[in-house]
């Protein structure tokens, strides 16, 4: 399975009971967006049916890029449980911070409507199993395993 608009691919070889994906992009901003879209695609059949009517600003700081991506995806899962929001990445800026790195972002989406969103599987956590963010040649890549 492959995302329609975003560069990510689900894989079945590293997490039998859960969901794993690879994401890739030319920039870190795009990589973080691709990982967020992949996470949404695990939960809903048609992410395009999730309308961007509510906006949630996100600001995170971590000591390295891997933990920043880890926390970014955790934030999306937190908002799904705490506020019942399904969210697309809308604006993302990943940059350096005095103690490591930071993300300033806007997530846009709407409250869960089970009939219209055709829900698939609840994502419950981001794991650190095989988790990585790396720069290879011309692009950034990430591998993520989600606990479902």
């Amino acid at each position: 399975m492959r995302g329609d608009a975003m560069p990510f691919q689900f894989r079945g070889d590293i997490a039998h009971a859960d969901v794993a994906f690879d994401a890739w992009a030319a920039s870190l901003d795009e990589l973080f967006a691709a990982a967020a879209e992949a996470t949404l695609a695990v939960m809903v059949e048609s992410p395009s049916e999730v309308y961007q009517v509510a906006a949630v600003p996100v600001h995170l700081e971590e000591h390295d890029l891997e933990m920043l991506l880890f926390e970014w995806l955790n934030e999306i899962i937190f908002l799904k449980d705490a506020r019942r929001l399904l969210l697309h990445p809308a604006e993302i800026r990943v940059g350096e911070a005095p103690q490591g790195c930071t993300i300033e972002a806007l997530l846009k989406g709407e409250e869960i409507e089970p009939e219209r969103h055709r829900l698939i599987t609840d994502v419950k956590a981001v794991t650190l199993h095989r988790f990585s963010v790396r720069h290879t040649g011309e692009r950034w890549e990430a591998t993520v395993v989600l606990d479902v």
Binding site: M1, F10, R11, G12, D13, A15, H16, A17, D18, V19, A20, T121, V148
Partner: peptide, 11 residues
């Protein structure tokens, strides 16, 4: 215990 990944099962 699973023998097939979720991804593979869905396919």
């Amino acid at each position: 215990g699973r023998t097939m990944s979720r991804h593979q099962a869905k396919k």
